[in-house]
Nucleic acid binder design. Structure first.
Lengths: 199, 199
DNA sequence: AATTGCAAATCGAACGTTCGTTTGAAGTCA
DNA sequence: TGACTTCAAACGAACGTTCGATTTGCAATT
């Protein structure tokens, strides 16, 4: 049997608490107590409270590196859009904390925003903009579409859904089946809208 | 000449600082100093730091009461959707702080979330769901549309746009003209999608 | 018109608490 | 033994609040 591993336990508890209440909403006293460790362990392993937060943030946003490969596995703008939706939904399912760090850093940026968060988000947005521009060029998407606005709309649609569930968790139960429905719904709204007839 | 009015000055500075850094990111020492008042004034007028935050929050979310009248001034689902988009955009233009309180409370709710924030958001969502359901019933919207998901998608689209501008304010300059373009874009994406041809 | 009286407003100091960090000693394992 | 962990205690700083004293604004009184 392995040791309880104080360091990773601090990461685990830090992730949970920082996600729920933000950097300033958590004291290292409560955090270390929750982890069953002494207060000094945070400074010992991470150089301080902010160091732990920084480590947690880096771990949370590491998955954004995948987006490049994910996109390459699909051809054509519409398929890539669906791939992005699917990837985002699975990301939120696999890690329910990520969205909190995401929006919390967007809304009230810490000093780590420029180094960790902004590049991660920027990378995804930039790739998606290229996808939409590709779609416009190939005349799959409308010629009057504004690529940046469209991408922000898409990202907003998908992320905001989960943001809503954070506050009203009772509203939406989830199963793999319902996720497929959700993916379908959002792809349809983004590509075809919700009008019954074509203009 | 009127008095500097310590109380309203505290509200003003409190709005600014709480929006930027959240409830726990601001000390009443810094806040009162910024307002040119003594530390004790916060407790005197608002009963404490949390009292000031609560007052600011209530003021910020008061505008959500308008949504009912706004909707009644428009007939038909599509027009009502556009009215919502326009109302939301103008709300963010008139008050650049609101969105930060909005997402901050969604992500890391304070004790005031259930009393102030949730009812305000819930009211808007509920009204929009009725609009979409009306549209489905009247066969203006697609029969397979999921009303709640559609509304969350719409709200996400519009709000997320401004959330993005919070982090990268350089990206998007704004003028009334560009706002009209934005309203048009988002209404089109929501109702018609961005596909070049109808399916 | 000037003076008085009083409640509201404002202040700076002080309080007790909690914060994040540091420290030196004790424990653990190879 | 020696390097790595862990701990409890202590530190100074910052926190939000309270308190008594002072100032201010205005209505009542002279």
């Amino acid at each position: 049997m392995t040791r309880p591993d104080c360091r990773s336990k601090l990461m685990e508890v830090g992730t949970q608490l920082f996600a729920e209440r933000g950097l300033n909403g958590v004291s290292i006293r409560e955090l270390s107590h929750e982890a069953g460790a002494s207060i000094s362990m945070v400074s010992y392993y991470f150089g301080g409270k902010e160091g732990l937060y920084s480590a947690v943030l880096q771990e949370q946003f590491a998955c954004f590196d995948q987006i490049g490969e994910i996109m390459e596995q699909h051809a054509g703008p519409v398929d890539k859009i669906e791939a992005y939706i699917r990837w985002t939904i699975q990301r939120h399912r696999n890690n329910p904390h990520l969205l909190r760090f995401y929006t919390s850093e967007l809304t009230n940026p810490t000093t780590y925003f420029p180094r960790i968060v902004a590049p991660a988000i920027g990378k995804v947005i930039r790739i998606l903009v290229k996808v939409v521009e590709e779609g416009i060029r190939e005349r799959v998407f409308r010629q009057d579409a504004h690529a940046v606005n469209a991408v922000l709309a898409l990202a907003g649609m998908v992320n905001y859904y989960f943001l809503s569930t954070l506050a009203t968790e009772d509203l939406i139960s989830h199963s793999p089946d319902q996720d497929e429905q959700l993916i379908h719904q959002y792809r349809e709204i983004f590509t075809r809208g919700i009008l019954a007839s074509a203009p």
